[in-house]
């Protein structure tokens, strides 16, 4: 399933945890890995003068500089790149998310692996606050699953064996389920299916009665059976749960409680209610930022 990994990196310690997971996956699953770094943004248009995102300095870009950066990246990950590993270092110039997506379109990786926040400062970071960070833009638009490891604690697992699949019964959740199920079968994992029932919408004087909530939980469990369990045939290593609360909190809590080593979710998990599909603060993005394990978000069906 993971034969080709695109690891997008700032090549700084902000991506060390993502690197730990990416290189571990490459070794574990015998995959080709492209470590990809976007050097910086041209000062304007097709200018050869580029603001290096790592150093914040303006540099004249030529092949020498590219080679130098590649060399530096190889040295930085030297202890993680095993001699037997099929690893290539790629660099490019431009807006990070756009270049990552461009390379992904060209090389068609099975998965993009990246860190959550690079902790960038200065003008670039200020602009990013408006447009959304790189991982948000990549996760929103990518054609393949995107794995984000935002917190160092998410990188201390080594492989996958307990997968949490978070669903809101949307179409993109169905896509995510297909991927999570494939993953669970392929790597012989336990699949933990969770629906987090959103009870935050209620006002103080219109609190749902517990009977209402329990009814909704029962309905959600039926949905789970209908949408997912029925498709799993003889796969028995699963658990189904419905927890009520604030969805992202419940998913993060559930993953922690179950010692999950991976969470899989659809990215635009909100149904078409017109409330800012994929906007900042969507459930998937909050889970990505907070989880104690890697999170894979999926946008669209994965071609088989």
């Amino acid at each position: 399933m993971f034969k080709k990994i695109l690891f997008a990196t700032s090549a700084t310690n902000a991506c060390d945890h993502a690197a730990r997971v990416a290189f571990d996956m490459a070794r574990r699953y015998n995959a080709h890995i492209d470590a990809f770094h976007v050097i910086g943004v041209p000062t304007r248009g097709f200018s050869q003068v580029v603001v290096d995102l790592t150093t914040g300095e303006q540099v004249a870009l030529d092949d020498n500089y590219r080679d130098l950066v590649k060399e530096e990246i190889r040295a930085y990950y030297d202890h993680q790149i095993k001699p037997s590993m099929d690893c290539a270092i790629e660099v490019a110039v431009g807006e990070a998310h756009r270049e990552i997506l461009r390379l992904a379109r060209r090389t068609q990786p099975d998965i993009i692996v990246m860190g959550g926040s690079t902790g960038a400062t200065g003008a670039y970071a200020a602009r990013r606050n408006i447009t959304g960070s790189t991982f948000q833009q990549v996760a929103k638009a990518a054609h393949c699953p995107v794995m984000v490891i935002n917190r160092p604690a998410g990188s201390f697992w080594g492989g996958f064996s307990n997968i949490v699949f978070g669903t809101d019964f949307s179409e993109s959740a169905d896509t995510a389920f297909a991927f999570a199920f494939d993953l669970a079968k392929t790597f012989d994992c336990e699949l933990l299916l969770l629906h987090a029932l959103d009870i935050t919408g209620c006002q103080i004087n219109t609190l749902h009665s517990q009977d209402d909530i329990d009814d909704q939980i029962r309905k959600a469990r039926q949905q789970m059976r209908f949408r997912y369990i029925s498709k799993m045939r003889d796969f028995k290593n699963y658990e189904v749960d419905v927890w009520e609360g604030i969805p992202f909190v419940e998913i993060v809590k559930y993953a922690r409680e179950k010692h999950a080593d991976l969470i899989v979710m659809g990215h635009h998990t909100r149904k078409k209610t017109g409330d800012g599909e994929g906007a900042l603060g969507s459930v998937a993005e909050q889970v990505i930022l907070r989880a104690n394990c890697p999170v894979i978000s999926i946008n669209r069906p994965i071609p088989r």
Binding site: W157, G158, N162, H259, D261
Partner: peptide
């Protein structure tokens, strides 16, 4: 320790729990 030769600490803890 978190980083062990055969398995990571959290996975050990999961087994323990």
């Amino acid at each position: 320790d978190i980083e062990l030769p055969d398995e990571w600490g959290p996975r050990f803890y999961r087994k323990l729990a």
